[in-house]
């Protein structure tokens, strides 16, 4: 669907993107993840035709951004960071303006604007001026703007930054709905964002892709490390320490606290093997009641920190 090849962008001396190669398939939500200043926004701006690359090419559906930029812009709906919409227009006027520029005919325009008002929940703010809107509403108008022509590709730069938790949930829902049929590329520096809404994650750091895969794959591929949370009734701290520490793969036993006679522990595991069986056998040999046994995989946050830290 979209292909970036050897994409490089310099701002003067500063290298914002360093030979990026990336293929984005249709019908997926791709999360572009990276710390601030990693080059996410630059990459999105090049894909949307706002900036031209220093070298390298972008093609979308076989069209090159150098020669068919207008066609590509028609295909893409783009919402820049912070949704910098015209402040001095009414939401109603703004949506009509975008619809006109996008070339929707008069009939389709009305139908489409109604649909978008429903999807994005704009009913009550249609006749308010954009500069009066809260951040959340502005973002929703921005989404409606980006989706106006039902674009095949939706590019969203930090779509949930600065919103409150409810608004974030709403925007994520909208994005997920769209992501079922369309290609969505979103950038973020918030990890939970990616875990919550993306099929695929590309981690960028200092202009380079440092990791690429599904959220699942990414978790697995990094050094396997997980923890097991256990709640036991009738166990004593010293005994628990003594029995679990010798098991191969258990690095540490942490005490999490007591609750009504039961004690909770966390076993940190430094191994790729699954040692849950061994742990269970060990517990079985004791006169304890097992109340809880849960494996916690490493959070994406940890992976993210590891991957982006190396070059510091």
């Amino acid at each position: 669907m979209i292909e970036l090849s050897e994409l490089t962008k310099y701002y003067g001396e500063l290298c914002a993107l360093d030979h990026i190669n990336l293929t984005i398939e249709k019908g997926k939500i791709l999360g572009l993840l990276g710390p601030n200043g990693a080059g996410k926004t630059t990459a999105l701006r090049i894909i949307t035709g706002y900036l031209s690359p220093t070298s390298g090419t972008v093609t979308a559906k076989g069209l090159s951004i150098d020669t068919d930029v207008l066609e590509i812009k028609r295909m893409i709906g783009y919402l820049p960071e912070e949704a910098p919409l015209y402040r001095d227009m009414l939401v109603y006027d703004y949506l009509h303006y975008v619809a006109d520029i996008r070339g929707l005919g008069p009939e389709r325009k009305d139908v489409r604007i109604h649909e978008l008002v429903d999807i994005c929940g704009l009913e009550e703010i249609m006749h308010r001026s954009i500069h009066e809107l809260s951040k959340g509403f502005k973002q929703r108008v921005g989404l409606a703007h980006a989706m106006m022509d039902d674009p095949e590709i939706l590019v969203l730069d930090e779509p949930t930054s600065g919103l409150d938790p409810n608004q974030i949930a709403e925007i994520r829902n909208i994005i997920k709905q769209i992501g079922r049929q369309k290609t969505v590329i979103l950038s973020t520096h918030i990890l939970s964002e990616v875990e919550a809404s993306c099929d695929r994650v590309v981690i960028i750091n200092e202009g380079r892709i440092v990791a690429d895969g599904s959220t699942e794959e990414l978790r697995r591929s990094s050094e396997a490390e997980y923890s097991l949370n256990i709640s036991l009734e009738g166990a004593e701290d010293e005994v628990v320490d003594k029995i679990f520490t010798p098991i191969e793969g258990v690095a540490e036993v942490q005490r999490l606290g007591t609750d009504n006679g039961s004690r909770s522990f966390r076993l940190l595991c430094r191994t790729t093997d699954d040692i849950r069986g061994k742990i269970y056998q060990t517990i079985k040999q004791q006169d304890w009641t097992l109340l809880e046994f849960k494996q916690e995989s490493k959070s994406l946050e940890k992976i993210f920190r590891e991957l982006t830290k190396e070059s510091e």
Binding site: Y50, I76, P80, E82, P84, L85, Y86, V98, R102, H145
Partner: peptide, 13 residues
């Protein structure tokens, strides 16, 4: 304001 980015990424020359 930054609205220029939106304007330029609409299909206009």
């Amino acid at each position: 304001v930054g609205s220029y980015e939106i304007l330029v990424t609409l299909p206009v020359t």
